[in-house]
Simulated assay, not measured.
Amino acid sequence: MTTSVRTRLSGSWRMTDWKVFRGEEELDPPLGPAADCAGLLIYTNEGTMSANLTLLERPPFADGSLDGGTQQERADAYRSVIAYAGTYDVDELTEAVVHHVEIATFPNFVGTDLTRTCIFEDENTLKLDTPPMEMGGEWLGSYIRWQRTGTEGQ
């Protein structure tokens, strides 16, 4: 019996790799090299999802209050994180997951559907291929590789 894509997705995942492509050329993702980033992706059984990507090294604001930070500190913080959440559906035939974005750091994502092709490299490693997205004025393909949490080092 084959396990459904939805069942296989359910749980939490940590980012292990992130690549952007211009044809055959590899480029750094928008936040910088994958080795300098961290990510967490969560899919619930109820159909809710959350994706968070960030630089590992983010300087704290000089003013530590929640509404603090200079305009430059806030701009730098915004440039160092990509996060969104909402609901999701799975197309079992094409093995694609569609994220229905409800909230996001990038306002243009809100109200959109983001489709990702699921490639399960093994039961604990997930590669999500992204259709070309506009980055730096170009349409570039990408993928993010995720490791199921709790399976690091297995």
Rank of each mutant, 00 (worst) to 15 (best):
Q71V: 08
P33Q: 10
E26W: 00
A38P: 01
I82N: 15
Q71P: 10
T87R: 15
L41A: 06
T44Y: 08
M15Q: 08
S12M: 09
R79W: 00
A34V: 01
D67L: 03
W18T: 02
G47H: 09
N108H: 10
G64R: 13
G23D: 08
L31P: 02
T70N: 12
E92F: 01
T48M: 09
R79K: 14
P59Y: 01
R22C: 04
R74C: 04
E57F: 00
E92R: 09
F106R: 15
E26K: 14
S50D: 08
Y84W: 12
A51W: 05
T105D: 12
L27P: 03
I82G: 11
L93E: 12
N108T: 10
V98M: 10
V101A: 09
L66Y: 04
H100R: 15
E26P: 04
E25D: 13
Y43F: 14
T44P: 09
L40K: 09
P30W: 04
I103F: 04
W13C: 02
G69W: 01
E92P: 06
N52H: 14
G32K: 03
L41G: 05
R74N: 12
I82V: 13
A77H: 12
R74G: 07
L66I: 04
E57A: 03
D36W: 00
S80Q: 13
D89M: 08
G39E: 02
N108Q: 13
N52F: 08
Y43W: 08
V90Y: 07
C37A: 04
N52D: 12
A62Y: 01
N108W: 03
R74L: 08
G23M: 05
A85M: 11
L55Q: 10
W13G: 02
Y88L: 11
D28N: 09
M15W: 02
E102M: 12
L27N: 07
W13F: 03
E57L: 00
A75C: 04
D89V: 10
M49N: 08
W13T: 02
F106I: 12
P33N: 10
P29D: 06
I103L: 08
H99K: 14
C37Y: 00
H99R: 15
D28S: 06
G69F: 01
A62K: 10
T16Y: 02
L53V: 08
G39H: 02
E57Q: 11
D67F: 01
R79M: 08
L27M: 07
G23S: 07
A83D: 10
M49T: 07
L53R: 09
G23V: 03
W13I: 02
A83T: 15
W13D: 02
T70F: 01
G47D: 06
L56V: 06
D63K: 07
E25C: 03
T48N: 14
E95L: 06
E26R: 13
D89S: 15
A34Q: 05
C37G: 02
P107T: 12
L27H: 06
A104H: 10
A75K: 15
R14S: 13
A96C: 11
L93G: 05
